[in-house]
Amino acid sequence: MYDETGNKPGWQSLPRGGVIKRPGSASAYETGEWRLEKPVYNTEHCIQCFLCWVYCPDSAIDVRDGKVIGVDYYHCKGCGICVQECPRTGRALDMVPEGDNK
């Protein structure tokens, strides 16, 4: 939302009425830095039940070609719901302190 010079646009170049014309533009906003703990995904133990996807408040479970492939750390806030709800908790998904590169 910055112009090429890095400045925010002035009133003359903004769309009128505070209308946001780019659907889903929030995906460019990072909320991952809120995390104190992070869920770590291990594909070997994942049974592809998708419960983490259905319960994630932050749309932060990455799915590709019909499979869960990991966690979107750009958006994950580290609430831990996915780990709590995972039938293979501690294996397919485990909670570790942020900064721990396990």
Partner: peptide
């Protein structure tokens, strides 16, 4: 994602 509702 990228909304700012609280964790959990």
């Amino acid at each position: 994602g990228g909304h700012r509702l609280c964790a959990g």
